[in-house]
Design a protein around this nucleic acid. Structure first.
Length: 509
RNA sequence: GGCCCGUUCGUCUAGGGGUUAGGACGCCGGGUUUUCAUCCCGGUAACAGGGGUUCGAAUCCCCUACGGGCUGCCA
């Protein structure tokens, strides 16, 4: 460790193999929060060394999603596919230092070795200090043979030669000291036979050349960190090993294992920030938090609390507040199960805090999608004002206010059965008739009038109001009934009241 | 199987030698002289087990159990 103060530079390094899932977004978020907290630099690096898994549009998706979330980069994107030459040059140093060697084994050779080892009782055989001397590589072949194979263009990989003796340990910012015996570690391929580096090599070279000071990444990388550190040694970069912070994984809500792409459909919630659609195969289309009606601020807030918390009792945070409060010391060590109910609650809290105009903008696409034509309706803001405090997602908005735009809806049968009594019917008719003669059709006047009528006839709100509500909206629940009447206006209210008794009776008692 | 990491209410977590073990989600119950999907109030519920260390362990150590990750010419 050198004591020179390094500039705070972090990277988020996704692989463009499909839409970025919520775990990746959280990793990006923690990187972002840390960088902003320390006035550092965040860069985006696209790890596209696996051409076979490359997906068109994935990089654009990653950038759009992160932008939607409010996560910005100061540099990049850098693409590993543009840096092939850099990796080639560097790997030579590892070869020269005998930290790496050529391996000529075919996929079949490897399969055979694994089979044979298994038969010998080695349950999960590795290409390592124990087995490498049985394989075809520059450690077992004569220098002339190696030379010949290289010259003749035989396919080869380059493997990291992990020493048989020794320990590699490091101080992880969330887990403390972690150490590995090198003899337990396999000789990872760092350069593939197609000429591309694997993650392990590219990642180390890039982090060094891009002067990365801290690596915040998922716990799935913890096991290979010793390999990475070993490469820093081989390159002579020991003084430039970044501070590692391995953050806990996001787990499935039920069952076991880390949250995966398919869990969205399985459990009925989004696992991607934005929808990923219009793919050829139906099963490759995914919903997103956006299409579920979430505000990005809520998604961020929810994600931040999966594996981190400020140590205070505050739960609702803006991005600015998260930056202010964030610290790696408060990151939990254990995996966190994804809890969609909690996500909905965060969203509801954020929606309630929104300015009316912001809420309207968020809700608009969902209204359109539901076929509600809002253009030219001056009362939209008022309607949304009634709805905003009651919804958990934008998605609920159309259902919550469709009756303002249409008088065709299902009636809540339960309420009708419970409340529609023969002795109520005359009062329903008399009350609505007298209401129609009210000179001032404004919620407070309506309320005064209705209250007086009920009091005069010894009826409770509970006997009458649910019926009025079902007549007007179809539903048993919703915003203040008198406000609804005012906004609906007489010309909508009274026809609905007039037809109601017939509809109620048709529903049967 | 091996290695690494972890384990506080059902879930997310606070707490790091002495606490009535706190909060939030969910759930349940009340209230808002109407509904409830809002809001308010209240309630239920946890230190995985066993050994140490200590006057005293949820907190420190060890073991076991359980969970997760890795164990690919994927990242």
């Amino acid at each position: 460790m050198n004591s020179m103060k390094k500039a705070v530079r972090l990277r988020f390094a996704p692989s463009p193999t499909g839409p970025l899932h919520i775990g990746g977004v959280r990793t990006a978020l923690f990187n972002f929060l840390f960088v902003k907290k320390h006035q550092g630099t965040l860069l985006l690096r696209i790890e596209d060394t696996d051409r076979s898994r490359y997906q068109e549009g994935a990089e654009a998706y990653i950038r759009e999603s992160l932008e939607w979330c409010g996560i910005q980069f100061d540099e990049g994107p850098y693409r590993q596919s543009d840096r092939q030459e850099i990796y080639r040059q560097h790997v030579g140093k590892l070869l020269d230092a005998e930290y790496a060697y050529y391996a000529f084994d075919t996929v079949e050779d490897l399969d055979r070795m694994r089979e044979e080892e298994k038969e010998k009782g080695n349950h999960v055989p590795k290409y390592d200090a124990k087995t490498r001397m049985q394989m075809k590589n520059s450690l077992t072949l004569s220098p002339e043979e190696v030379e010949r194979r290289l010259a003749s263009g035989d396919p080869y990989t380059i493997r990291l030669r992990m020493p048989e003796e020794g320990e590699i340990s490091f101080d992880d910012a969330v887990r403390g000291e972690v150490s590995f015996a090198t003899r337990e570690l396999d000789d990872k391929i760092i350069m593939k036979s197609d000429g591309w580096p694997t993650y392990h090599l590219a990642n180390v070279i890039d982090d060094y050349t891009m002067e990365i000071s801290h690596v915040i990444r998922g716990e799935e990388w913890l096991s290979s960190t010793a390999h990475h550190i070993y490469m820093y040694r081989g390159f002579g970069w020991e003084d430039h090993i970044p501070q590692f912070a391995h953050i806990p994984l996001i787990l499935k809500p039920s069952g076991k294992g880390k949250l995966s792409k398919r869990d969205g459909q399985k459990f009925g919630f989004p696992v991607f920030p934005m929808a990923w659609k219009n793919r050829e195969k139906a099963e490759d289309n995914f919903e997103g938090f956006d299409s579920f009606g979430f505000s990005p601020a809520a998604v961020i807030n929810f994600l931040a609390f999966l594996g981190w918390n400020p140590g205070t009792e505050q739960e609702i945070f803006s991005m600015e507040q998260l930056i202010e409060a964030f610290s790696l010391k408060q990151v939990a060590k254990s995996g966190a199960k994804f809890d969609f109910d909690k996500a909905r609650w965060f969203n509801q809290q954020h929606l309630q805090d929104q300015a009316p105009e912001q809420f309207l903008q968020g809700a608009l696409p969902f209204l359109k999608q539901a076929g509600i034509e809002t253009d030219g309706h001056a009362r939209l803001s008022e309607i949304l004002g009634l709805v905003q405090p009651r919804v958990h997602t934008y998605q609920e908005v159309p259902t919550a206010c469709h009756f303002f735009y249409s008088d065709r809806f299902e009636l809540d049968v339960k309420t009708i059965r419970k409340r529609w009594k023969p002795e109520i019917k005359p009062h329903f008719e008399a009350l609505t008739k007298q209401l129609s003669e009210l000179p001032d059709f404004e919620s407070s006047s309506i309320k005064v009038f209705v209250s007086a009528y009920l009091a005069e006839h010894g009826l409770s709100f509970g006997q009458m109001l649910p019926l009025l509500r079902v007549a007007l909206t179809g539903a048993a629940a919703g915003p203040d009934l008198f406000k609804i009447m005012e906004l609906l206006g007489r010309e909508e209210v009274f026809p609905r009241f007039a037809r109601a008794p017939g509809q109620f009776e048709a529903q049967g008692t």
